[in-house]
Amino acid sequence: MTNTEDLPEVSGYSRVSVLISAVVGLAVAALALFWAQGFRIGYESLYRVNPSVEGGGIGSDWVFGNTIPALDFLIALIHAADVILGAFILVMVFIHWAAFQRLADQMREPGEDVNEAVAADGGSPARGDEQGGDSA
């Protein structure tokens, strides 16, 4: 980068700490892998994913029943958390949606004269890049 005049001083992360962290991260991941593999793989046919099987499918061997109440409780708990947080997240979506509408109303309409406004600022690149509908 040649132009530094306008750029701020930023105290980022030092190279050393990034390097150390990367090494630690990879080492722990390798250990985790080693540990998990220690359970012996090659035994993955445990009725987990079998969507094409008639009447089978995921978890169908629940017929054996769960004998550990704590797990039942955990699952009930996590369901409750899903629902409560889900409702909360929806509220956040609606607040932002509405706030964005108001912010948009404060902006210039697409046709309006933009010249006097200094360009950019993330203000639209005049054309919106149709990303709404399709995924990668």
Partner: peptide, 27 residues
């Protein structure tokens, strides 16, 4: 300074569709 920016022409349509998709997806 937001009033000095101009809205992208596609914003209203796209944000409405995408907002709806987000809500439907979450639900």
């Amino acid at each position: 300074g937001i009033e000095r920016l101009s809205l992208s022409p596609s914003w209203r349509t796209v944000s409405t569709i995408f907002g709806a998709m987000t809500v439907i997806g979450i639900v």
